[in-house]
């Protein structure tokens, strides 16, 4: 786990809140979603990553019953996705907020609360939660993009749904608003709610998500915890002469765990073994100029997976 600790619901973590099997959506000749097997576990924040047009929103729409799957199955909270009993327990903000422009933010939420058969007292709490109380009586059409987005999130939170699906929730928010939104998402998960977050902001996903699914060209390339996706950190050694540095590294790290990156030697070695490596290098007569740990960011991994025709892409596809 990278960004946060999950509180309260670890015992339920293995229960799948969302499960799809070979979920496919075809629009004529275009395959928008291609045999996606997605799993979201109870209590986690799941990041759904992908470039524009990768199939993220179409997948989310199928999970909410807005769009029919061409083939495959999707279950949400143990029932067929989109059935009324399910959507009542799901809060969603899909591809931008859709509200009545002539109504105030508060009245828009009152309308949605009536559809959900919730007491209207929930409306004030939801507005408070997204920091819109003071502008709740203004008309929706007068809101900034960020305020509209926050109202969309407030609507998704009505009735404390078990699963909250947020499609690019930080769109249009200023930096402070984005930070607030991240805190809110983390707080939701701490309160036991499951969050399925679609985003193209990699640092955001890296910071708050427990697991990540990467989708590209309609195919789910990989689904794994953030840490697993990034892989272990590596040691990067800059020493001379290079051939002796390489030989020592291979002796300690094994042939498979060592690679050359320019004039640097990179090797998979746990932290505890770093002093032994330095001693061995010095004993072998190597002038050690630098030894440091390098970590791949989620961004590195993302681009490796989604860049078309790259070797890393093919490799990850094969292993997923």
């Amino acid at each position: 786990m990278h960004g946060r600790a999950v509180g309260g619901s670890l015992g339920d973590m293995n229960e799948n809140v969302v499960q799809t099997h070979a979920l496919t959506k075809r629009y004529g000749a275009r395959l928008a979603v291609d045999r996606v097997d997605l799993t979201v576990r109870r209590g986690e924040v799941y990041g759904f990553l992908g470039p524009n047009g990768a199939g993220k929103t179409t997948t989310l729409r199928m999970l909410l019953g807005l769009v029919r799957a061409t083939s495959g199955t999707a279950h949400v909270l143990g029932r067929t996705a989109g059935s009324p009993g399910v959507t009542a327990k799901v809060g969603a903000l899909i591809e931008g907020p859709g509200f009545y422009p002539y109504l105030s933010g508060r009245d828009n939420l009152r309308v949605m609360a009536r559809y959900r058969q919730l007491p209207e007292t929930e409306v004030d709490a939801a507005l408070e939660r997204v920091d819109l109380s003071d502008r709740g009586d203004d008309r929706f059409r007068s809101y900034s993009l960020g305020m509209k987005q926050r109202l969309g999130v407030a609507s998704a939170l009505l009735g404390a749904p078990e699963l909250v699906v947020l499609d690019e929730p930080t769109n249009g928010l200023d930096p402070a608003g984005m930070a607030d939104m991240r805190s809110l998402i983390v707080a939701l998960a701490r309160g036991g709610q499951t969050v399925l977050l679609s985003s193209h902001l990699l640092d955001e996903v890296e910071e708050i998500c427990d697991r990540v699914g990467v989708i590209s060209r309609g195919r789910l390339l990989r689904e794994a915890p953030v840490q697993e996706l990034r892989g272990d950190s590596r040691l990067s050694v800059l020493g001379s002469p290079l051939d002796i540095t390489l030989a020592v590294a291979m002796r300690l790290g094994g042939e498979d765990g060592v690679r050359l990156d320019g004039d640097r030697v990179e090797l998979d070695l746990p932290n505890a073994a770093t002093p032994a490596l330095v001693r061995a290098l010095v004993s072998a007569g190597v002038d050690v100029q630098e030894v440091r740990r390098t970590e791949r960011s989620l961004e590195d991994v993302f681009f490796e997976m989604t860049e078309p025709r790259s070797g890393a892409h093919r490799q990850l596809e094969e292993t997923s």
Binding site: G65, L66, Y115
Partner: peptide, 14 residues
């Protein structure tokens, strides 16, 4: 046009 049906269809009722 406003996207309100989309919002309403995810509120629970059929």
């Amino acid at each position: 046009g406003w996207g309100t049906w989309k919002t309403i269809y995810t509120q629970g009722p059929s």
